[in-house]
Protein backbone atom coordinates (compact mmCIF):
# COMPACT_ATOMS: atom_id res chain seq x y z
CA UNK A 1 0.00 0.00 0.00
CA UNK A 2 0.99 3.57 -0.65
CA UNK A 3 2.61 5.52 2.17
CA UNK A 4 0.57 8.52 3.27
CA UNK A 5 2.57 9.79 6.18
CA UNK A 6 6.16 9.37 7.13
CA UNK A 7 7.62 10.85 10.30
CA UNK A 8 11.38 10.62 10.60
CA UNK A 9 13.40 11.16 13.72
CA UNK A 10 11.08 13.63 15.47
CA UNK A 11 12.36 15.57 18.45
CA UNK A 12 10.26 17.82 20.60
CA UNK A 13 10.92 19.30 24.02
CA UNK A 14 9.16 21.81 26.22
CA UNK A 15 10.74 24.35 28.51
CA UNK A 16 9.34 24.06 32.01
CA UNK A 17 11.04 26.86 33.85
CA UNK A 18 14.74 26.12 33.96
CA UNK A 19 14.41 22.48 32.96
CA UNK A 20 13.72 21.14 29.53
CA UNK A 21 11.27 18.29 29.21
CA UNK A 22 12.22 16.10 26.32
CA UNK A 23 9.01 14.57 25.06
CA UNK A 24 9.90 13.12 21.68
CA UNK A 25 13.38 11.72 21.23
CA UNK A 26 13.69 10.53 17.68
CA UNK A 27 10.25 9.13 16.96
CA UNK A 28 9.67 7.41 13.63
CA UNK A 29 6.32 6.46 12.19
CA UNK A 30 4.95 5.45 8.83
CA UNK A 31 1.26 5.41 8.04
CA UNK A 32 -0.09 3.87 4.87
CA UNK A 33 -3.16 4.93 3.00
CA UNK A 34 -6.31 3.29 4.32
CA UNK A 35 -4.66 2.22 7.53
CA UNK A 36 -6.22 2.46 10.99
CA UNK A 37 -3.28 2.91 13.35
CA UNK A 38 -3.46 3.24 17.11
CA UNK A 39 -0.69 4.95 19.06
CA UNK A 40 -0.59 3.71 22.59
CA UNK A 41 1.44 4.96 25.51
CA UNK A 42 1.34 6.04 29.11
CA UNK A 43 -0.03 9.36 30.14
CA UNK A 44 2.52 12.06 29.46
CA UNK A 45 4.46 9.92 27.03
CA UNK A 46 3.99 12.41 24.22
CA UNK A 47 1.11 10.89 22.25
CA UNK A 48 -0.77 14.14 21.83
CA UNK A 49 2.42 15.95 21.01
CA UNK A 50 3.17 13.47 18.26
CA UNK A 51 -0.35 13.65 16.88
CA UNK A 52 -0.28 17.44 16.78
CA UNK A 53 2.99 17.34 14.88
CA UNK A 54 1.59 14.80 12.42
CA UNK A 55 -1.37 17.09 11.78
CA UNK A 56 0.77 20.23 11.41
CA UNK A 57 -0.84 21.75 14.48
CA UNK A 58 2.65 21.94 15.95
CA UNK A 59 6.17 21.83 14.60
CA UNK A 60 8.88 19.45 15.76
CA UNK A 61 12.21 20.82 17.04
CA UNK A 62 13.93 18.45 14.69
CA UNK A 63 12.89 15.82 12.23
CA UNK A 64 10.74 15.59 9.17
CA UNK A 65 7.09 14.81 8.57
CA UNK A 66 6.34 13.88 5.00
CA UNK A 67 2.74 13.96 3.94
CA UNK A 68 2.19 12.38 0.54
CA UNK A 69 5.88 12.90 0.00
CA UNK A 70 5.72 16.59 0.86
CA UNK A 71 7.88 17.89 3.71
CA UNK A 72 5.61 19.81 6.12
CA UNK A 73 8.57 21.87 7.35
CA UNK A 74 8.87 23.38 3.92
CA UNK A 75 5.29 24.53 3.73
CA UNK A 76 4.97 28.22 4.63
CA UNK A 77 2.77 29.08 7.61
CA UNK A 78 -0.03 30.43 5.46
CA UNK A 79 -0.30 27.25 3.44
CA UNK A 80 -0.13 25.15 6.59
CA UNK A 81 -3.50 26.58 7.59
CA UNK A 82 -4.86 25.43 4.27
CA UNK A 83 -3.24 22.06 4.80
CA UNK A 84 -4.94 21.65 8.18
CA UNK A 85 -8.20 22.78 6.68
CA UNK A 86 -8.21 20.46 3.70
CA UNK A 87 -5.99 17.48 4.37
CA UNK A 88 -6.48 16.51 8.01
CA UNK A 89 -9.34 16.23 10.43
CA UNK A 90 -8.82 16.39 14.19
CA UNK A 91 -10.93 14.70 16.82
CA UNK A 92 -10.05 15.64 20.41
CA UNK A 93 -10.73 13.96 23.70
CA UNK A 94 -12.78 16.92 24.91
CA UNK A 95 -14.70 17.29 21.62
CA UNK A 96 -13.76 20.98 21.35
CA UNK A 97 -16.93 22.23 19.74
CA UNK A 98 -17.71 25.94 19.54
CA UNK A 99 -20.38 26.61 22.17
CA UNK A 100 -21.95 29.49 20.28
CA UNK A 101 -22.62 27.49 17.13
CA UNK A 102 -25.25 24.82 16.76
CA UNK A 103 -24.47 21.26 15.75
CA UNK A 104 -24.92 21.81 12.04
CA UNK A 105 -22.79 24.96 12.07
CA UNK A 106 -20.08 23.19 14.03
CA UNK A 107 -19.99 20.48 11.41
CA UNK A 108 -19.65 22.80 8.42
CA UNK A 109 -17.27 25.16 10.22
CA UNK A 110 -14.19 23.87 8.32
CA UNK A 111 -15.81 24.79 5.00
CA UNK A 112 -16.55 28.30 6.27
CA UNK A 113 -13.05 28.61 7.67
CA UNK A 114 -11.57 27.55 4.34
CA UNK A 115 -13.51 29.91 2.07
CA UNK A 116 -13.81 33.62 1.53
CA UNK A 117 -17.19 35.29 1.96
CA UNK A 118 -18.17 35.08 -1.74
CA UNK A 119 -16.73 31.57 -1.86
CA UNK A 120 -18.87 30.60 1.09
CA UNK A 121 -22.02 31.89 -0.60
CA UNK A 122 -21.20 29.78 -3.63
CA UNK A 123 -20.75 26.55 -1.73
CA UNK A 124 -23.08 27.19 1.18
CA UNK A 125 -25.85 24.94 -0.10
CA UNK A 126 -23.47 22.13 -0.80
CA UNK A 127 -21.82 22.50 2.61
CA UNK A 128 -25.09 22.45 4.49
CA UNK A 129 -26.22 19.39 2.61
CA UNK A 130 -22.97 17.60 3.23
CA UNK A 131 -23.12 18.51 6.92
CA UNK A 132 -26.68 17.15 7.10
CA UNK A 133 -25.61 13.94 5.38
CA UNK A 134 -22.76 13.52 7.83
CA UNK A 135 -25.08 14.08 10.76
CA UNK A 136 -27.42 11.49 9.34
CA UNK A 137 -24.57 9.00 8.99
CA UNK A 138 -23.62 9.73 12.57
CA UNK A 139 -27.23 9.38 13.74
CA UNK A 140 -27.60 13.02 14.74
CA UNK A 141 -30.15 14.31 12.22
CA UNK A 142 -32.53 15.34 14.95
CA UNK A 143 -29.84 17.33 16.72
CA UNK A 144 -28.81 19.67 13.92
CA UNK A 145 -30.24 22.79 15.55
CA UNK A 146 -29.11 21.96 19.06
CA UNK A 147 -26.26 23.63 20.86
CA UNK A 148 -23.32 21.52 22.04
CA UNK A 149 -24.27 21.93 25.70
CA UNK A 150 -27.57 20.20 24.97
CA UNK A 151 -25.82 17.04 23.81
CA UNK A 152 -24.34 14.08 25.66
CA UNK A 153 -20.60 13.40 25.52
CA UNK A 154 -20.96 10.67 22.90
CA UNK A 155 -23.15 12.87 20.75
CA UNK A 156 -20.68 15.70 21.00
CA UNK A 157 -17.86 13.44 19.97
CA UNK A 158 -19.85 12.34 16.94
CA UNK A 159 -20.40 15.98 16.02
CA UNK A 160 -16.65 16.48 16.33
CA UNK A 161 -16.09 13.52 14.00
CA UNK A 162 -18.56 15.05 11.58
CA UNK A 163 -16.61 18.28 11.67
CA UNK A 164 -13.32 16.44 11.12
CA UNK A 165 -14.77 14.70 8.06
CA UNK A 166 -16.44 17.76 6.59
CA UNK A 167 -13.68 18.63 4.12
CA UNK A 168 -13.10 14.95 3.25
CA UNK A 169 -9.61 14.89 4.74
CA UNK A 170 -7.03 12.36 3.64
CA UNK A 171 -6.09 11.73 7.25
CA UNK A 172 -8.22 11.60 10.36
CA UNK A 173 -6.34 12.18 13.62
CA UNK A 174 -8.13 11.22 16.82
CA UNK A 175 -6.67 12.05 20.23
CA UNK A 176 -8.26 9.73 22.77
CA UNK A 177 -11.66 10.09 21.17
CA UNK A 178 -13.21 7.77 23.75
CA UNK A 179 -11.17 9.00 26.71
CA UNK A 180 -14.00 10.94 28.19
CA UNK A 181 -16.80 8.49 27.49
CA UNK A 182 -18.17 5.41 29.20
CA UNK A 183 -17.31 2.13 27.52
CA UNK A 184 -20.64 1.64 25.74
CA UNK A 185 -20.59 5.15 24.29
CA UNK A 186 -16.90 4.83 23.55
CA UNK A 187 -17.68 1.66 21.72
CA UNK A 188 -20.16 3.36 19.48
CA UNK A 189 -17.56 5.98 18.61
CA UNK A 190 -15.06 3.24 17.79
CA UNK A 191 -17.67 1.62 15.58
CA UNK A 192 -18.03 4.86 13.70
CA UNK A 193 -14.27 5.03 13.20
CA UNK A 194 -14.13 1.41 12.11
CA UNK A 195 -16.81 1.90 9.51
CA UNK A 196 -15.07 5.00 8.25
CA UNK A 197 -11.86 3.03 7.94
CA UNK A 198 -13.68 0.30 6.05
CA UNK A 199 -14.83 2.96 3.61
CA UNK A 200 -11.17 3.83 3.00
CA UNK A 201 -10.47 6.54 5.57
CA UNK A 202 -6.93 6.62 6.93
CA UNK A 203 -7.05 7.06 10.70
CA UNK A 204 -4.42 7.61 13.36
CA UNK A 205 -5.82 7.28 16.86
CA UNK A 206 -4.12 7.95 20.16
CA UNK A 207 -5.15 6.06 23.29
CA UNK A 208 -3.71 4.75 26.51
CA UNK A 209 -6.15 1.86 26.63
CA UNK A 210 -4.92 -1.48 25.15
CA UNK A 211 -8.44 -2.77 24.61
CA UNK A 212 -9.36 0.22 22.53
CA UNK A 213 -6.09 0.08 20.61
CA UNK A 214 -6.89 -3.48 19.63
CA UNK A 215 -9.82 -2.29 17.60
CA UNK A 216 -7.37 -0.63 15.24
CA UNK A 217 -5.65 -2.46 12.44
CA UNK A 218 -2.20 -1.73 13.79
CA UNK A 219 -0.78 -0.75 17.15
CA UNK A 220 2.38 1.30 17.74
CA UNK A 221 3.74 1.95 21.19
CA UNK A 222 5.34 5.13 22.29
CA UNK A 223 7.78 4.58 25.10
CA UNK A 224 10.28 7.09 26.38
CA UNK A 225 9.81 9.41 23.46
CA UNK A 226 10.40 6.77 20.85
CA UNK A 227 8.12 4.57 18.80
CA UNK A 228 8.48 0.92 19.57
CA UNK A 229 6.34 -0.26 16.75
CA UNK A 230 4.63 -3.52 16.02
Amino acid sequence: MEVLLKAEDLYKSYKMGPTKVKVLKGANLTVKKGEFAAIIGASGSGKSTLLHILGALDRPDKGIVKFNGQDLNRIPARDLNKFRNKKVGFVFQFYHLLDELNVLENVYLPVMAGTSIPGWFLCRKWAKNRAKELLEQLGLSERAKHKPYQLSGGERQRVAIGRALMNEPVLLLADEPTGNLDSATGNSILEVLESLNKAGQTIVMVTHDERIAKRAGRIVKIIDGEIKGA
Partner: peptide, 16 residues
Protein backbone atom coordinates in the same frame (compact mmCIF):
# COMPACT_ATOMS: atom_id res chain seq x y z
CA UNK B 1 -8.78 30.85 23.81
CA UNK B 2 -10.20 27.35 23.39
CA UNK B 3 -12.15 28.61 20.39
CA UNK B 4 -8.99 30.05 18.93
CA UNK B 5 -7.33 26.65 19.27
CA UNK B 6 -10.29 24.95 17.65
CA UNK B 7 -10.51 27.42 14.80
CA UNK B 8 -6.82 27.13 14.13
CA UNK B 9 -7.05 23.34 14.17
CA UNK B 10 -9.60 23.55 11.36
CA UNK B 11 -7.35 25.84 9.37
CA UNK B 12 -8.00 29.41 10.51
CA UNK B 13 -4.97 31.70 10.31
CA UNK B 14 -3.60 34.31 12.67
CA UNK B 15 -5.06 36.99 10.45
CA UNK B 16 -8.45 35.30 10.59
Amino acid sequence: SKDIGILKSVGASKKD
